[in-house]
Each structure stands twice: as C-alpha cells, then as structure tokens.
Amino acid sequence: DEETLERIAKELKEKGWTLIVNGKLITDAREALKWLLEEEERR
C-alpha cells in the first residue's frame, strides 16, 4: 500500500541507497517511489 511505499522511499533516502531500474540508476527517493507506484499499477 501507499504508506508502505512511502516508508520504503524514506528509508532508501535515509540510507542513501540507489535503485537500479531497467539499467537506470535511481538515487532520488521520489523517483523510486514513482517507479514503485507504477509497478503496483501494472499488477
């Protein structure tokens, strides 16, 4: 759910983690959240 996604995005940002999505590096939590939401919609 959205709360979980926001928590994940926040944790990613705090830890300075990066996500690699389709070979693209995502360092911004907002971008990561946007991607996660798009993935949820596809299901």
Rank of each mutant, 00 (worst) to 15 (best):
L25A: 04
W35R: 11
L37G: 02
L5H: 02
G16N: 06
L33A: 10
A29Y: 12
I26E: 01
A9Y: 14
E39R: 07
W35N: 00
E6N: 12
K13Y: 10
W17G: 04
I20Q: 01
K13V: 13
R42L: 07
K24W: 14
D28H: 04
E2H: 12
L12G: 01
E14C: 15
L5G: 02
W35T: 00
T18R: 09
L37T: 03
T27K: 06
T18I: 14
A29D: 02
I8T: 01
E3M: 13
G23C: 15
D28N: 08
W17T: 00
L19W: 11
A32T: 04
A9L: 15
K13D: 04
E38A: 11
L25C: 10
T27V: 08
G16F: 14
A9P: 01
N22T: 06
E41W: 14
T27R: 11
A9N: 05
E40V: 14
R43E: 05
K10G: 04
W35Q: 01
E41L: 13
N22M: 13
E41K: 12
L37V: 04
L5Q: 03
E14T: 11
I20K: 01
L12F: 10
G23P: 02
I8V: 05
E31Q: 10
E11H: 12
E40N: 11
L19F: 08
L33T: 01
I20G: 02
K10Y: 06
D28C: 15
W17R: 01
E31K: 10
L25V: 10
E38S: 07
I20M: 07
L12A: 03
E11G: 05
L36P: 00
K15G: 13
L37P: 00
I20Y: 09
E39S: 05
K15R: 12
R43P: 07
E6G: 09
K34M: 12
L36Y: 06
W35D: 00
E2D: 09
G16S: 05
W17L: 04
A32D: 00
D28T: 07
T27A: 09
E31M: 08
L12N: 01
E31R: 11
L25W: 12
E38D: 06
L5R: 03
A29V: 14
R30Y: 13
E6D: 09
L12H: 02
D28F: 15
L12T: 02
K15E: 05
K13R: 12
R30A: 10
E14N: 10
R42C: 14
K10F: 08
T27D: 06
E41H: 10
L36I: 07
T4E: 06
L33I: 07
K13H: 10
W35E: 00
E31F: 07
L36R: 01
T4N: 05
E14I: 08
D28L: 15
I20S: 03
V21S: 05
A32E: 00
K34G: 02
W35C: 07
E3W: 15
R42H: 05
I20F: 10
K24C: 14
T4H: 07
A29M: 13
E2R: 10
L33D: 00
D1I: 14
R7D: 03
G16P: 03
L33E: 00
N22D: 09
L12Q: 00
W17M: 02
E41I: 11
L25I: 09
L25K: 03
L36C: 15
L37N: 02
L37S: 03
K10D: 03
K15I: 08
L19V: 04
W17N: 00
K15N: 09
W17F: 09
K15M: 10
D1T: 12
I20A: 02
A29C: 15
K24D: 04
E39F: 13
